[in-house]
Design a protein around this nucleic acid. Structure first.
Length: 362
DNA sequence: TATCCGTGGTT
DNA sequence: TAACCAAGGAT
């Protein structure tokens, strides 16, 4: 029975239905080309990197700021990495910023400033994986590629009533998605799928009444749309703890240091801390070996700073200290005026710690 | 294949 | 509030 599978008599119906809906309801987004205008691969790439695991609302201001400061790939390639990290501060997943810069240099130096328009070429660039390569091919070059993101997985799981849980069902969902990508307007079709997942086929309480695919959707027919996609349970997050040392000098400048290039918050600035351990918070005497400047009056501040990372919870006890000098040269320390902290490459957790301390030391 | 890698908003 | 979710990539 044809009611048993998505699509009606012509398989071409589904893309056409979605494109008709998109032409009437497409979202206006800062990185999206106006109807009829050609997309700029640089803007498509920049937006796709920023949008990885990050919401449209969060990306908006960052995208505008990057575009204003670095209008083209050559400008970004010529930038200092630290300037890119500073502009990226707060967006998270900082390896994206390092790879963004590396990718810009590669495209400028080895591709004449033009992004490759092949899957292999795009996949060879840092920070571009299977999803982003397909998204660039479709949106920037209007080629029929299958861009699988969370939206598309959810829409396909429902359209075909795939009950097997993610991530195991990814190959099946991708096959379903690939079978639908049209030869005409594949870029618009891809973005239409994103819009559908973002505004209609949302995770909870999907608005099926407004959906252009309501009729062929098997999950809706079975009344299980909201239950899909199924997902395997994920492990609980452990708690890690540390003491953070907020050190100010005679001018009120704050001591920071740079984190290692790889790993968590790689290349970003930080407040000196004890090692981040699952053990209980150490006492100040027990942490003596990690104090950036011994021999001054360190004082524990009341309260804790809490922050959630992808795979652990972080609890930070904050310790404050002052030194009278203005030229303290602690090992690897960088002194920054409070007014200039916002311009540093400080991840959000470090901004929380600094705010906690500076509002209680004043 | 599984783990690591941020953050802010929503329910 | 806790859990979930977001235009994923690298190793």
């Amino acid at each position: 029975m044809k009611a048993d599978r998505p699509g009606t008599d012509q398989p071409g119906d589904l893309p056409r239905l979605l494109l008709n809906w998109y032409d009437r309801h497409r979202r206006v987004l800062p990185w999206r080309a106006a109807p009829g205008e050609k997309a700029d691969p640089y803007r498509v790439w920049l937006s796709e990197i920023m949008l990885q695991q990050t919401t449209v609302a969060t990306v908006g201001p960052y995208f505008q700021a990057f575009l204003a400061r670095w209008p083209g790939i050559a400008d970004l390639a010529a930038a200092e990495l630290d300037d890119v990290l500073r502009a990226w501060a707060g967006l998270g997943y900082y390896a994206r910023a390092r790879n963004l810069h590396k990718c810009a240099v590669t495209v400028a130096d080895r591709h004449g400033g033009h992004f490759p328009d092949s899957e292999e070429g795009l996949l060879s660039l840092p920070g571009i994986g299977t999803y982003t390569a397909a998204a660039i091919l479709a949106i920037a070059f209007d080629k029929p590629a299958t861009a699988m993101d969370g939206n598309v997985e959810r829409v396909m799981a429902r359209l075909h009533a795939v009950r097997d849980p993610l991530p195991g069902s990814k190959p099946v969902l991708k096959a379903h998605a690939a079978a639908l990508v049209p030869e005409t307007r594949p870029g618009d079709y891809t973005q239409a799928l994103f819009d559908l997942g973002a505004s209609i086929c949302v995770p909870r309480k999907p608005r099926c009444i407004l959906c252009p695919w309501a009729d062929p959707c098997r999950a809706r027919r079975q009344g299980i749309a909201e239950e899909l996609p199924a997902k395997t349970a994920k492990a609980a997050k452990p708690v890690r703890r540390a003491l953070a040392f907020v050190l100010t000098d005679g001018r009120g400048h704050v001591a920071l240091r740079r984190r290692p290039e790889k790993g968590l918050l790689g290349g970003m600035m930080e407040v000196p801390t004890t090692p981040w351990e699952t053990a209980p918070l150490p006492s100040l005497p027990a942490a003596a070996g990690h104090v950036p400047l011994p021999g001054i009056g360190w004082q524990a501040l009341p309260g804790l700073v809490r922050h959630t990372f992808t795979h652990f919870e972080f609890e930070i006890g904050v310790v404050a200290g002052r030194t009278a000098g203005t030229e303290e040269k602690g090992p690897g320390l960088i002194w920054v005026a409070p007014d200039a902290l916002a311009d540093e490459a400080l991840p959000t957790v470090m901004m929380k710690i600094l705010r906690h301390a500076l509002t209680r030391m004043a």
